[in-house]
Structures are given as structure tokens and as C-alpha cells.
Simulated assay, not measured.
Amino acid sequence: MSLHSYLLLNRIIPSTRKSLVVAILILISGFIFVSVIRPSWSSNISLSSQKISNKWEEMFQSATAAVIANTLSSSNKKVDWDVLLDDESLTGAQLVKYLMWTNHSSCQLSHDFGGVMMKNPSGLAGQKAVCIDPRVAPKPAKCLIYSFGIQDDWSFDETMARYGCEVFAFDPSIGMTSHDHSPGNIHFHDWGLGDRDEYDRHFNWTIRSLTSIYKTLLPRHGNKTIDYLKIDIEYSEWIALPEIISSGMLSNIRQLGIEVHLDKEASLEEHRGWAKLLRSLEKSGMVRFDSKYNPWYVGNFTKFPLSASLGYEIAWYNSNLSHPML
């Protein structure tokens, strides 16, 4: 074990030992049930027993996720995320710890904009955290919003328009052509976000890079900073983000809100790479101020032992783009 590994474990284990033991016991019992006990019932199981079986699996998944969440929040000690993500003994739980790091103290006033009310559990899904601190807050009547990923939920876009911003919304998947959306100062384009300009023949979608879109819309909104960039594009964030960073567009984004998606079929190394991509945002001056996991999107990973949320709403502001304070 490397010195970094040893020091990292010494910081984490004392405050998380009990929760980890419970999590391991739950995972073992769940594995035994799913792989040994339930198959023996399959030939003669009744409908009532099947319902009990399914309910047990739901409880197992929820309990495991709850224990992991408790484990990851049990220590308030500062973590060196670069050391953690580089460590050869990185675990899935430690990776989720990085994703769930909220860093709320970096923004004194954060509001959630938009979202759809859900059940079981009750709460908002799809909301985006916006830092309202004067140094980085969007300025009404002057702010510019780019919003990628609409589906059938315009709540974020309409709320930002009511706040006083001009909103440009994008989604190639909802069967709409370019138009001005009502109500609000919202301009819709049927473009998807990627790392280059291309036409997806399989889906019949036009995909464009953020750099290309910004240059195209420059005559409409002028050479303005994007006060908030919302990205909710179902795994394509991992394709678009490298171009946003390498092109220099990150320096023109004041706040960034992304729903990041994990893949239960992907390896731990693939997830490590995605986490390090997010970390590169923070090393470039983006300051995280919020993170929320999606409790309606939970799964069991197949290539490493973990049951956790597959979606995380994470928000940052650009420390290099603070408003001048009078």
C-alpha cells in the first residue's frame, strides 16, 4: 500500500467503520438472496411471494444506499480529492463520496430553480442550484442562460426567464423546431450538445459543440458571459465537457449546473475517469457549491460492489468571473 493510501485510510476508517460494516453485511445478505435463495423459488413462487421478493429487493437497495450516504457524510474532515481519485485502492463508495461533496459554505445563498415534483420519496427532480451571492449571481435584465436538455420540463427555463434572464434552450429529442417559447424570454433550438458539429443519422439529430453554438448565436445575444449553463443531456455530458474545457469556453461561463450520470455497467476505472474530468473543472477555477443525489434513479453496479444513485445534480461558479463589487 502506498503512503497516500495509508494516510487516506487513516482519515476515513475511524469515522466510518461502523457504517461500512453494516453496508457490507447488507450487501452480502442481498447477494445471497438474489443469487442463491430467489432462484430456488422461481419454479413455484406465488404472485404474493413474488411481490414480497420484489419489495425485499427494493428495501435492500434503499437500505444500502442509505448506509452509503450515511457513511460518506459521517466525516467532516477535509479530503484531498486529487489524492483520493488517484489512489490505486479507490473504492466505489469513495468515488460517490466525491460526487456527493456539497461544499455549501462556498456560496452563502443558493436557490433551486425549476424541477418537477416526484413521489416515493416526495421531492423535486431536475432542479438546478443557482448561487445568488452578489459576486456571482445572474443580474436581472442582463443575464444570459444556456439550457441543454428540456424533454417535457420547461420549469428551469421559465423560472430563469421570470428572474429576468434571456434564455436559450436546446434539445434535439423532443420533436420541436426552432421557435420562441412562451411564456418567457426563451429561444428554443433543436440542437444537441456534443464535442463537434455533426449529424446523428441514427436519431436524426443535429449535434453541435458549445463553441459553435455560441459563435452562431453571437449576433443575437452579443459577446456576453453565459451566466448559467445548464447541462442535462443523459450521459452525453461526458462527451461535451472535454471540448468545453479544451476550447476555453469554460472561461466564459459564470455558473454551471450539470446532472452527471453514472453507468451501472461501466467499470470503476471508467467512473474514476469521469470523476477526474469533473475535478479538472474545479482545478480550473470552478468552485462547487451544491450537490444532490437523485433518489429516484438508483442501481446496483455490476463491475464493483456498490448500490447507489446513478444521477447527481452538481453546481459550480467560476471564481475567475466574479462581478466587480462596489
Rank of each mutant, 00 (worst) to 15 (best):
S209P: 02
D171V: 06
I186P: 06
D200G: 01
F170M: 02
D200N: 12
R220F: 11
H189K: 14
G192F: 09
D197W: 00
D200Y: 03
G194A: 09
R201M: 11
N185Q: 13
D171R: 06
H181Q: 12
W205D: 08
H189A: 09
H181M: 09
N185I: 03
D200V: 04
G194N: 07
H181T: 10
F188P: 04
H202D: 13
D190S: 11
M176F: 10
G192S: 09
S212R: 13
D200L: 01
S182H: 15
S212E: 13
I213T: 08
R208S: 11
Y214T: 15
D190E: 07
L217G: 11
N185Y: 06
L210P: 09
T206S: 10
H189V: 04
D180R: 11
S182I: 12
G194S: 14
R196Q: 14
N204L: 11
N204M: 09
D200H: 02
I213N: 06
D171E: 04
S182N: 13
P172T: 03
F203T: 11
L210G: 08
S182L: 14
H202V: 15
L210H: 09
P172G: 03
G194M: 05
H187F: 11
F170L: 01
Y199W: 14
N185W: 02
S178F: 02
N204A: 13
L193C: 07
M176L: 15
S178I: 00
H187Y: 10
F188S: 05
H189G: 00
R220T: 14
T177D: 10
I186W: 06
F170G: 07
N185T: 08
W205N: 12
S173G: 00
R208I: 03
H179T: 12
T206W: 00
G192R: 05
P183Y: 01
M176G: 00
N204Q: 15
D180F: 00
G192K: 08
H202Q: 14
R208N: 08
Y214I: 08
